[in-house]
Amino acid sequence: MFDSPTFPLIALVFAGILLFQLFKGVRETLRRRRRVHGGAEAEAVVDWVGPVEPPAATEHPFALRYRLPSGAEHVQRFERGFDGVVPAPGWRVRVRFDPADPGNVEISDNPYTGPLPGAPAPKEPGPVARVLPRAGFLVVAVLFGALFLVSAQGGELSLPLFGAVFAAVGLFAAGGAVSVLRRHATLRRSPMHTTGEVTHVWEEWRRRGSGNDRRRVRLYPYTVRYTVADGRTVHRRSPEASNPPRHRAGERIEVYYDATEPTRFSPRSPGGGASVGAYIGIGLGAVFTLVGIGIMVFTLS
């Protein structure tokens, strides 16, 4: 495998993809700094609200109209920003933007999102949780780059580096799955309950498995619209998908949601779909990590 002339190219392509993702993250960080340092704030009004049109739009797109420091008005389209809450024209939020680039904008204060009255505010992610995804991309990209360089020169460290890539991917996959479980802890312990409506069901193809077992699988995700206890309407994609389709458009289903974050929901059972997926992620991450460590130990001993 490592003696193949195409393997260095494959490693280089993977490293390039990961570095590109890292570049996008760094670019967004720089854009955010320009909004925060030297940026301007203004009150924005919801100008219009578009329909949910899966698979392209699984939440309601909308446009905000706000005034620039020059006095001119600017209208900016957003694909998301209300966390699944259905906005209405005339709603007012606060935005922060770069005066030199009014399209570089974020919603800084949104009174229509957040917990139900009397429920605690959701915990902000810690520094480790914020840095971990980018650190994971960086580590895997560096390992792939090193693997490309070593394999291109016919070095003996190709196999140990391949094991290191496996272990790193497994560790970060398991860490992400643990984060999902922690986020759904309140939903599992004390869920709120209501009835929702399935609004759209569509076909989606995903890739499953790895190596020779890699295959395309057809799934049927769906969107759900429901109303929470304080009257807000939520309309967004369900966290689960299945084949055959579990529901049909227009069907009424039970919905469990978190009072702290009422836009996070689970159909049929509190946290069921997300929890199963997280446990699978932890299992696969553990397998990848153990296989990677085994490859490194075996080849270096």
Rank of each mutant, 00 (worst) to 15 (best):
R189K: 13
A42V: 04
E59K: 11
L30K: 14
H184R: 12
G16T: 11
R264E: 15
Y66F: 15
H37Y: 07
V52I: 14
R232S: 07
G16N: 02
F172H: 06
N243S: 14
V150Q: 09
P55N: 06
T199E: 10
D258Y: 00
A135I: 12
H74K: 10
L30Q: 12
G250R: 01
T29H: 12
R80F: 10
A88V: 15
F298T: 10
A57H: 12
G114V: 01
A57Q: 12
I295K: 04
P267M: 07
Q153R: 15
D230Q: 02
V75Q: 06
M296W: 09
A185F: 07
S4Y: 07
G38V: 07
L147F: 14
A229K: 12
Q153D: 07
P89W: 10
G114F: 06
P191C: 03
L159T: 13
P102E: 07
S301A: 14
T263R: 11
D101Q: 11
L68T: 10
G114M: 04
F23H: 11
G175L: 15
V139N: 03
V45E: 14
R77S: 10
Y226V: 02
A63N: 12
E240L: 09
R94Q: 14
W205P: 04
G38D: 06
E254S: 11
A63E: 13
A168S: 15
F298R: 11
R208H: 09
G292V: 08
G170Y: 06
S275A: 15
V45Y: 01
F7R: 12
F97G: 00
N243K: 04
W48N: 10
T113H: 03
G281Y: 08
G170V: 01
M192I: 02
P69K: 03
G175Y: 07
P127S: 13
S210E: 13
F23D: 05
V297Y: 07
S266Y: 08
V255K: 05
Y256R: 05
P120Y: 06
V150D: 13
M1A: 12
S210H: 12
R237M: 12
G118R: 03
I293A: 11
G50E: 13
S4A: 13
L147V: 05
V139L: 15
G103W: 03
V255F: 06
I253V: 12
S108G: 04
S70K: 05
S151I: 09
Y279D: 03
N110I: 00
P5E: 04
P117M: 01
F162H: 05
